[in-house]
Design a protein around this nucleic acid. Structure first.
Lengths: 233, 233
DNA sequence: ATTGCTGGATTGTTGAACAATCCCTACGGT
DNA sequence: ACCGTAGGGATTGTTCAACAATCCAGCAAT
């Protein structure tokens, strides 16, 4: 029987925390850089990413590049075609349907049954709404799109679950690829500003049930609009 | 204006399918092998996985090993401590709470709003229930645990979403790590056999609302039981 | 126009190397 | 006995160079 030493245990715990906040690895930074290029639209869906070019551009070895690319493939930001290379993902109709199927399950449930305490979580939702309005006032539609994503991230954050937050981040990154495949960012995002506001107001009033219903309707409309746009593509 | 050639289009589609069914890469196979060892419990939570040992055991180079390990780290099967190595994950109390938070949102929602048509999906649930009963009759409690996981995977499959299925697979793999940290596999899984049966019967009767409520209660009880066991650890 | 071949380019995988970091131990000072 | 420190060994993080396997484009031949 080994006796537990609480002090020692606490110290090793601190050491672990230290390690977790250690500087990210090179591969992680490469992945961040490439992901940034993709979600910002500077790398278009379908674009090919030769490993050597990335080596030259980022000044790291091919192995490190490959590690980063594998990471992005599991995030669905890139797709790998064996022996051909990796490409920026091109979400197809089925991908859109599936993403919205998940969102329609998760987002209303988070609004309805979220366990986040206090008003901070709702305040984050309000902040995203304001951010969208500010973007619209400045006619910066890319900013409006970003604010919209912050809005939905804030909705999921009501569940107070790191794992769910992470999954939502992946889904939203995939959504950016969807938007990059089609024109009309303004037309798509602008109409939802008022609906965001309405949902947020319901939340602030404590009427989670009504807010959840409204979120579900929102997502259904958005999906339909995207699928129609895909058909016209 | 380009004219569409349906034959040509079908052929390129075939080419893409060919690539997707291409034999998995070495790194993928290594990841599968290690994951198998972990979920089967032959590698205990907290165990260290030195890269060189894996090289010798599996006969592949260190770079390939590292690629596989990175993959498993993103799956939360392993954790990496920079400059120290990778270890089999040891889900802590917070991990259990978070996993169940996600499951309590997703599983009832999938049961309630799932869009899987036909009886095939419900039949899969029934199959998992029968599998559990068979395992209990044979007093094979590991089989009962596996059947339980199949049951919950079948519940999520009601949503008919590949992305959700994949996420559920990751959560269930994490749950296996939780179980490996504590004794009493039988005591934990056996009581849920009758509840599985009840939920399945409700589903077969078309009463999704009642089934969803029952799933939610189920998950709440299971979480509580696990947290108590953690405290006694 | 279709088939078959060939050369070049890219990926998949390996092996070896080196710096950086960590762990452990021994040593010396107090 | 306790703390700090310095060294040594082991492991990881990263790079580089090489080779086989595969794919692609272009060309030749029918």
């Amino acid at each position: 029987m080994t006796t537990v030493d609480p002090t020692r245990e606490a110290l090793t715990s601190l050491g672990r925390a230290r390690r977790l906040m250690a500087r990210t690895s090179t591969a992680d930074r490469v992945a961040d850089a490439v992901r940034e290029e993709v979600v910002e639209g500077r790398l278009r869906p379908g674009a090919r990413l030769p490993e050597q070019d990335l080596c030259a551009a980022l000044g790291v070895s091919r192995n490190t590049i490959r590690e980063a690319l594998s990471q992005l493939v599991t995030e669905r930001v890139l797709v790998r075609e064996p022996n051909r290379g990796v490409f920026v993902a091109q979400p197809d109709r089925d991908a859109v349907r599936d993403v919205y199927r998940v969102r329609r399950l998760v987002e209303p449930a988070a609004v309805l049954h979220g366990e986040a305490f206090g008003d901070a979580a709702v305040a984050a939702v309000r902040a995203a709404v304001s951010e969208g309005v500010a973007g619209a006032d400045a006619e910066d539609w890319a900013a409006v799109a970003t604010a919209n994503q912050h809005f939905h991230r804030a909705l999921v954050a009501l569940a107070d679950s790191p794992r769910l937050d992470q999954q939502m981040a992946l889904l939203l990154a995939e959504m950016r690829l969807v938007f990059h495949r089609m024109p009309g960012v303004r037309e798509f995002h602008e109409p939802y500003l008022t609906r965001n506001d309405a949902i947020c107001t319901l939340l602030e009033a404590g009427d989670r049930a009504a807010a959840a219903v409204e979120v579900e309707r929102y997502l259904r409309d958005a999906e339909l609009q995207l699928l129609v746009a895909y058909d016209a593509l």
